[in-house]
């Protein structure tokens, strides 16, 4: 039977409502609220992990993210410049590095630096923050390098030509004319990278460490075994990640719409 556009739209809406209501009713009927509550929402038993979850865990999550990003940014900029270099071996190295570290899971790098290196080179006993900074920094540098290269190359060639024809040396044209324009282009993807790093800093939980070096996920996991509150500690840790990442997204979106409006 042929239907008009209006009939079809109405039918589609009805089907969607039926599915939506059906799922909610099924959940309400199926769920044992008592068990659910004691597994996910046993907030009353969380006392022992406060305030350390915040004062140590949240602090370390931010700290690991910041140092990894700083390391990744410096290395990423270096790799981006190498990838645009006229000397071919630099380009090969940068390409190899980027493909390698983008292609393997971050946790493998973390294990390598956390356990492999100290075993292979006895005496190299890096403190945990350094292991995290180097491991996650290497991985994020690979992504950051590509972002920066794309940003620098998105600035029209006429810009550096105009700068050079005013007598600016290449580095000066880069610093004063090209990079400020590239900065606006790369800001949204860079914010994304910080968000990914914030979450990846949770991988540090696999490294054995003293309590002072725990980040939020480690706190949450230990809380599961010690508190008898189900996975409630992880739920709380997850909420704290959102407290960091959602504002970052909002800031990025704000910058994005601002630079889209003025285009300068």
């Amino acid at each position: 039977m042929a239907m008009t556009t209006r009939q079809r739209a109405r039918l589609s809406k009805i089907v969607q409502i039926i599915i939506f209501v059906g799922v909610i009713v099924a959940v309400l009927l199926k769920v044992d609220w008592k068990i659910l509550g004691s597994t996910f929402f046993a907030f009353d038993k969380l006392g022992p992990i406060f305030p350390e979850l915040i004062t140590v865990g949240l602090k370390n999550t931010l700290y690991y993210t910041a140092i990894s990003f700083a390391f990744g940014l410096v290395l990423g900029l270096l790799l981006a410049l190498m990838k645009m270099a006229s000397f071919a071996p630099y380009r090969w190295f940068a390409t190899g590095f980027i493909e390698f570290f983008r292609g393997i899971p971050a946790i493998l790098v973390l294990i390598t630096f956390g356990y492999g290196i100290p075993t292979a080179f006895p005496g190299t006993n890096w403190p945990q923050p350094v292991v995290v900074m180097v491991s996650l920094g290497l991985v994020s540098a690979a992504y950051i390098a590509e972002t920066l290269r794309a940003g620098l190359q998105a600035v029209p060639k006429g810009q550096s030509e105009a700068a050079r024809s005013l007598g600016m040396p290449a580095w000066r044209a880069m610093v004063t004319i090209v990079i400020p324009q590239a900065f606006k282009i790369v800001l949204p993807p860079m914010t994304n990278e910080v968000i990914l790093l914030t979450k990846d800093s949770s991988l540090a939980f696999i490294l054995g460490a003293s309590m002072a070096q725990y980040e939020m996920t480690k706190f949450g996991r230990d809380g599961i075994t010690s508190l008898g509150a189900g996975i409630t500690p992880l739920i709380v840790a997850g909420a704290l990640y959102l407290v960091i990442t959602v504002p970052l997204s909002l800031i990025a979106r704000k910058f994005e719409s601002r630079s889209a409006r003025t285009k300068r």
Binding site: G158, Q159, E161, A162, A163, P180, Q181, R264
Partner: peptide
Amino acid sequence: FQQFNLFPH
């Protein structure tokens, strides 16, 4: 230049 190439920032 034909396309001006002013610095937009």
